[in-house]
Design a protein around this nucleic acid. Structure first.
Lengths: 129, 129
DNA sequence: CGTACTGTATGAGAAGATGCATACAGCCCT
DNA sequence: AGGGCTGTATGCATCTTCTCATACAGTACG
């Protein structure tokens, strides 16, 4: 249920990873306005991380206006949030591409080879998005 | 000269930002194999950051094999990584592709979009590999 | 009411990230 | 040789991140 939250050992602080992945989940429509967010404890347990670390992430999300925290009831995806999504996703796509090219180059692999494989994998798991 | 290194106030550690942006600069062909990297001091001064922080980033880049550090002379973008056997490269490429697809999916981005961008970036930095 | 859930809060402590100052050793060029 | 560059290194102070262990208060529901 929460596998889109897998943590990486990148030197990036945990709360930042959680914050950003949640933001992307919202931007991608995986979590929609009004939806209840995963409970702080759910996330903490799933990621084997401290409750306060998750709270740190959630607080930043609230500060940004992405979610609303209601004590004793839960946290919910905030209402309007569409304007940022499309542009942010374009940036994200470009970022992912740059990163992939970088990784491929460093590994001595032709980026176009990787691109081809990406397409193949994507098609094989459901053509439409 | 070093504006592609602008730091953001994201909670992401400075050394991580430097490391990743350098990696992308290399991957995108902005910095090419054999090129001298910006001096640690240059980066430190330009970003108003401690010399040791830059070194932290550069060390990780060297650990990865992306650059080579030569004391008293400078740091240089590593030569083309060709040492991998063909089979190993195939595996690596597949691995990179899977990773990219996963990252794209999580971000709500069409993997094929990313693939397209990868090709575009790869071509723009020299068609033949 | 009582139980189970939610977010809130605190305090101690370890580990990491940054900055500042300072120094050293090696290379290059004049 | 000397000056100017390069990466390397250390010590100290500070802030952030993260964990562990608790505890509390409000909500929902039987």
């Amino acid at each position: 249920m929460l596998d889109f939250l897998r943590l990486e050992d990148n030197g990036v602080p945990i709360y930042v990873q959680i914050r950003d992945k949640m933001l992307r989940a919202i931007g991608a429509g995986r979590l929609r306005p009004g939806d209840q967010m995963p409970t702080m404890r759910e996330v903490a347990v799933a990621l084997k991380v401290d409750l306060n670390t998750v709270r740190h992430a959630y607080r930043e999300l609230e500060r940004t206006g992405a979610i609303v925290i209601v004590p004793a009831r839960g946290t919910f995806v905030a209402a309007q949030h569409a304007p940022l999504a499309r542009e942010a996703q374009e940036r994200r796509a470009e970022e992912l591409a740059l990163q992939a090219v970088a990784a491929a180059t460093v590994a001595g692999v032709d980026p176009r080879d990787v691109a081809g494989r990406i397409v193949r994998i994507a098609e094989s798991k459901g053509g439409g998005e």
